[in-house]
Amino acid sequence: MEISTQEFKHCEMIKVKGRVDSATAPQLAQALEKANEDGKYKLVMDMSELEYMSSAGFRALLAAQRNAKKYNRGEVVLVGVPDRIREALELAGFTELFKTFDDPLHAVGHF
């Protein structure tokens, strides 16, 4: 798994590549927490190059969304979610908790 971040005027984009499972999810959680520590709560998760995500990754996303939405200070949105991962998120009932976009520009423009 690889994580990179890109700053925009009104939000931060966090791109996660590769596979997120119980071994790698703590790193993802850490990157999301780090953004929050830096006062960034408006986050775009770019999942377009993500190959795999287990429920360990879903939990990291859920924690980040809770933290972001607290006091209405922000939101986590998802962009480029691959079909298989979208399907698993749907099974888990997670798709209602996150706005999703196909195009990164639209996701960034949401903020």
Partner: peptide
């Protein structure tokens, strides 16, 4: 897990 629950009420366990 209550997959209809609001964000704040979502439980983390049982999802696997």
């Amino acid at each position: 897990p209550d997959i209809q629950a609001d964000l704040g009420d979502r439980k983390i366990g049982g999802l696997g």
